[in-house]
Design a protein around this nucleic acid. Structure first.
Lengths: 149, 149
DNA sequence: GAATTTGGTCAAGCGGCATGACCATTGTTT
DNA sequence: AAACAATGGTCATGCCGCTTGACCAAATTC
């Protein structure tokens, strides 16, 4: 009851709550689908690294710059993904000092599956809300962002 | 350009993007307001701790249980907030072993200001969307969560 | 061809978290 | 009341992810 009083005092009704809950629901559903697809060990941190790896590969220093972390930290994150078979390193033909980070077969497969998963989740929302309301929601969310930004 | 190709390939259009952006916008606006109000050093981790501190105080072991972390970790997080003047410890009159974590003056002030900040942000959204559409948005977000959950 | 810049590694340290052992107080059993 | 279990917290230790700082090697600039 003390607990309830507290919760009541905290539960200032504001839009941030729903935003957070909806986002979390999406995220959790995404990770659940990843696990179901056989990618048990993928985290958001991994995702933050992987989005930087384009078809031509990328240098770990580039990742460091984009993410505003030290090159050592970026290197460590890349190495972890290498160890788990999602990335591999190879020399940069254009620069003898550099090493390129590229997706492995498994890495590419995972990214493809992830695209499918996101499409599926989007589809689930569309089935819940209907196309019209879904599109309206997305526009509304953009306006929210602008209103807050 | 390679970068753009990559971005384009990644930019599978899905509702998760807008959810994330809107949520992030809210969060960033909230922290910006906290800084503006003189609470420069508050983090989400701090918030996760503070929500557990009711008017009667709470034991750090309770926090540990709720957050599913070890009591040492919980204790450490509490201590950090104590060091910065938001929390203080005092003995539990009802249990000689226990120590209660309670808000200091500054801690309470911060929580009050935070409530005001959240109300203000909610107000900004309402001014952007109008009351009607805001309420609809919140209901829609709830349905999204249910549809995904 | 020397000097500077750039890509990357190595060494050491720190903060946040976990595990495991331990102490002090309280509650329970008989 | 005495003995034991359960509970609230602390201490010691170690892992992990990240930082700073020094360094090496290749490339670019002058």
């Amino acid at each position: 009851m003390t607990q309830n009083d507290t919760k009541a005092a905290m539960a200032i009704d504001h839009i941030g709550v729903e935003l957070w809950q909806a986002f979390r629901a999406f995220e959790e559903a995404m990770f659940a689908a990843l696990v179901a697809a056989g990618y048990e060990d993928v985290t958001t941190a991994d995702g933050d690294v992987l989005v930087h790896v384009g078809p031509d590969g990328v240098r770990s220093t580039e990742i460091a710059k984009s993410r505003r972390i030290t090159k050592q930290a970026a290197q460590e994150q890349v190495q972890r993904l290498v160890r788990r078979g999602y990335l591999e390193m190879r020399p940069d033909p254009r620069d003898g000092r550099a090493r390129l980070v590229v997706l492995t077969e498994r890495g590419e497969a995972m990214m493809r599956d992830l695209v499918a998963i996101k499409r599926d989740l989007d589809g689930r929302v569309r089935r819940t809300l209907g196309d019209l309301e879904t599109d309206m929601l997305r526009q509304t969310l953009d306006r929210v962002r602008e209103g807050l930004g």
